[in-house]
Simulated scan of single mutants.
Amino acid sequence: MIKFVLPVLCCLSFPLLAASLDWQRKTDLLLPVQEIYPAVFQGEIYVAGGLSSELPKQQGQMTAKVQIYNPTTDQWRFGPSLPEGRHHGQLVAAGGQLYLFGGFVSANGGHWSASADVLRLDLQQQVWLKVATLPAPLSETVSWVWEDKVHLVSGRSPAAAANAQWQDQADVAIHWVFDLKSFTTAVAAALPEVKNSAAGLQLHGVGYLFGGRQVQGGNTDQVHSFDAKSQQWALQKTMPMAQAGLAAAALDQQIWLFGGEFFQQGGGVFSKVWSYSPADNSWQQQGEMPVPRHGLGAVTLDDAIYVIGGATVAGLKQTSAVLEKVTSLNPG
């Protein structure tokens, strides 16, 4: 049996800024989804696929629907659906295009078959087209964009020939760089540890990877950074708590972390919001989420962070349609 451990921080303390964030409830998603990786594209927020406790189990509780949010009208609409239901797919806006990398689909007799697809939204035809194939199937990964290249780091990939169930996959330390011009994938310096369900982004030419989960070890509090110029990984100050299934977004020169889940003693979700300052490698608690959840998404748009979907209990239960707009009361 795999045991996931929630760390006890009885002897540690972190600065608390109780009123540092303003939370505004916005219009709910049209369909509640979790295990999503949203992206900002052409001034709107895109959510592609996902899992939902509201969908039939015989269909894998996944959706092919693409939901688009307009911040000006505070309204959602459906966009061009994916070719098939898909969850844990990495949505990336880059080079004026919108891409989706990997994720899980229904294939080989199961609903957790990792995909190697690279899809792109054809704006003229309003349809998703397969434009490339990754070196191997990949899901639950993290991405960032640097100089017309998409970095894909960590996640899960089939351990052997079987590729139908979640347990057919193994945690990986993959670091691939997908070239948006040639549609080819190069291998870069591997992450120093295997993990899945982390959160990450790029800020000022440095990629950051926060937390995640190791099947053999549970949630991790490690923070890895990758310098695009030196092509080297480095360890930064560990997270205040070991979290997985969380979301990250940048605002005011800081990186903000939201949510996540743990499985100890029946499981639960994290409520505390943390900010990380790359400038001085420090952490602060920034209050708590009004609706704690995991498997959520977070994106930065117009000097605000939008916190999207997820689930209010650990696992595939109580999927949420909540959308919140978060702004800083102490801008840097």
Score class of each variant (00 low, 15 high):
W256V: 13
Q232N: 09
A244L: 14
L257T: 14
A198S: 07
L203T: 03
T238W: 00
Q231A: 14
V223L: 13
A198P: 00
T238P: 14
F270A: 00
Q222S: 10
N196G: 07
Q232E: 13
Q236E: 15
Q202E: 14
P192C: 11
L201P: 01
Y276H: 04
G218S: 12
D227L: 07
Q236T: 10
G245E: 01
H204M: 09
V273T: 04
H204C: 07
Q236M: 15
G260R: 09
D252P: 02
D227Y: 03
A228S: 14
V215R: 02
S275I: 05
G205C: 09
H204I: 06
G260S: 10
S277A: 08
A242E: 01
S225Y: 03
F210L: 03
S197L: 06
V215L: 06
A198M: 03
K237Q: 14
F258I: 09
V273N: 02
Y208D: 05
S271R: 13
K229G: 02
E261H: 12
M241V: 14
H224N: 12
L251K: 09
V194C: 05
M239H: 04
N219A: 12
G245K: 04
W233H: 10
T220E: 02
V215H: 01
F226K: 01
G211R: 03
A248M: 12
S230H: 08
G245R: 07
T220W: 01
A250V: 13
L209H: 08
N219H: 02
S197Y: 11
Q264G: 04
A234V: 08
T220A: 04
L251W: 09
G205L: 14
A244Y: 15
E193S: 10
Q222P: 00
Q265R: 15
E261Q: 12
G211T: 12
G218M: 05
G260Y: 15
S275Y: 03
V273H: 03
P278S: 06
G267D: 00
G266D: 02
S230F: 02
I255L: 15
N196Y: 05
Q254W: 08
S197D: 13
G266K: 11
G200S: 06
Y208P: 02
A244M: 13
G245Y: 02
L251D: 05
Q202L: 10
Q253F: 13
G267C: 06
G218T: 05
G245I: 11
V223S: 03
V194S: 05
F262Q: 04
L246W: 15
A249V: 08
A249D: 00
Q232V: 07
Q222F: 03
S277H: 02
K195R: 12
S277R: 05
K229E: 15
Q253Y: 12
A247I: 14
G268I: 01
W256T: 08
W233A: 01
G245M: 10
L235A: 15
G207V: 04
G245L: 13
H204G: 03
V223P: 00
P192N: 08
Q254V: 08
V223R: 00
Q264P: 06
R213N: 07
D252C: 09
K272S: 07
V206D: 04
D252V: 11
G207E: 06
Q214P: 02
A250G: 11
D252Y: 14
S271G: 03
T220C: 03
P192H: 07
Q222E: 08
A250I: 13
N196W: 06
Q202V: 08
